[in-house]
Amino acid sequence: MDKVAVLIPCYNEEQTVSKVIGDVKEALPEARIYVYDNNSTDDTAKLAAQAGAIVRREYKQGKGNVLRRMFREIDAQCYLMIDGDDTYPLDCAREMVDKVLCRNADMVVGDRLSSTYFTENKRPFHNFGNSLMRMGINGLFGSDIKDIMTGYRALSYEFVKTFPVFSKGFEIETEMTIHAVNYNMQVDNVVVEYRDRPEGSVSKLNTYSDGLKVLRKMLQLYKNYKPLRFFGGLGLILILIALIFMLPIIGVYLDTGLVPRFPTLIVCGFMVLAGIQSFFSGMILEVMAAKDKKDFEYRLNRIHENRKTPE
């Protein structure tokens, strides 16, 4: 088992990968550096190997697929995850790693949004999307994560080995954050500097399509992890809409004894029934979610007990 493993997922990063590896060696000389090439069409893998990294390949496209492979194949006391585009300075790497090794943090988030992100990032919709996701997740899950979408994180062995990766692409960061918050794992924030990509280096993140995937992932996980709130809220909305249309009909009936608009009344009745059914479905799923949290604690304890002694 490595003490510190630095994970660098790469796709066409020949312009910056050598510098990133060199910066890692200077900041964390004891770390083993792993570069996973994700079907690059340039010399990323060759340059990474020349710079001294352990180079492996993941042939299923997407950052989530790469991290699934990394987490499965690498054992370490602490994992430092960083992008290969040279947007994150390594001057905070030691602090992030120490929080995992010495202070029992399960996830340390490299917080770009509290430093230079909004001035360095030249893509305004990326800035808006990051702020929106931060407010949405913190509001829905009652957390205080400073940067949801950052690719700069330090992770514990227990987190990595209990985290089921379902995302295929860039929504993986959202999934990791919500997983940590939902299972009450220790999450720390470290403010890090951010610099935009050097000229000629192109972001692989599509603002609109990937943004919609991230938003969908957030709502999906909220449904899975907070089912009573999700389905209870849905049921309340259905009942309120039904009441808005039913009250005038009831008013006419009380005044005249006649029931106008029978089709509307019937539809509203079904909406009320659907709302009640949604609420009770949420209650049942909430019990299942509570059992899942209990089972997770057992899994976490087993992984902690079976943790290998580092070489």
Rank of each mutant, 00 (worst) to 15 (best):
E311T: 07
G139T: 09
S278T: 03
V272R: 00
K146W: 08
D75P: 05
L238K: 10
M283A: 13
V160A: 14
R32S: 15
S114L: 01
M107Y: 04
Y194N: 05
G22N: 15
E120L: 03
S281W: 13
Q220L: 11
T174I: 13
M283E: 10
I239R: 11
G110I: 04
D255G: 00
L155N: 09
M283D: 02
N127D: 15
R307N: 06
L7K: 03
P198S: 09
A154D: 13
S156H: 13
R94L: 08
N39Y: 03
R123Q: 07
S156T: 09
L132W: 11
D86I: 00
K294I: 11
S209R: 14
D85K: 06
Q220G: 14
T177Y: 00
E158A: 15
M81I: 07
D86C: 10
V252Q: 07
R32F: 01
K293N: 11
L7I: 14
P89S: 06
K63C: 05
Q186L: 11
Y79M: 05
I266H: 00
K217C: 13
F159M: 14
N224R: 13
Y36L: 15
E193F: 04
I82D: 05
L90I: 01
C10V: 15
F125D: 12
G142K: 04
R72K: 14
Q50Y: 00
L258Q: 14
Y298M: 10
R197S: 07
I266V: 15
Y88A: 11
R56E: 14
L47T: 07
D23M: 12
P248M: 04
L243S: 08
T264Q: 10
A93N: 03
V4A: 07
R261K: 08
A27Q: 12
T150Y: 03
K63F: 03
K217Q: 11
D210C: 07
T41G: 15
F163K: 05
F279D: 00
A45I: 06
F159W: 11
V6Y: 06
M218A: 15
A5M: 08
P9Y: 02
S143H: 02
M246F: 13
P260I: 02
Y79F: 15
G62Q: 07
K99Q: 13
G142T: 09
F230N: 08
P124I: 05
L215C: 10
E175V: 07
F279Y: 15
D295H: 09
P89N: 03
R197F: 13
A27C: 12
T162G: 13
L285W: 11
I241P: 00
N206V: 03
M176C: 09
I276S: 05
D144V: 01
Y11T: 02
F141Q: 08
E173Q: 10
G169L: 06
M96W: 03
F163V: 09
S18Q: 14
G200P: 11
M70R: 03
M271I: 03
V100M: 07
K291V: 14
I266S: 08
F280R: 12
M246C: 05
R134L: 03
P248F: 06
L212Y: 09
Y59N: 10
C78Y: 05
G142F: 00
L155C: 12
I82T: 15
Y208Q: 10
Y183P: 00
T207E: 15
I249K: 05
G110L: 02
P263L: 04
G235W: 01
M133S: 12
V6S: 09
P9N: 06
K146D: 05
C268L: 03
Y208D: 07
Y88M: 14
P9R: 08
L7M: 11
D196K: 00
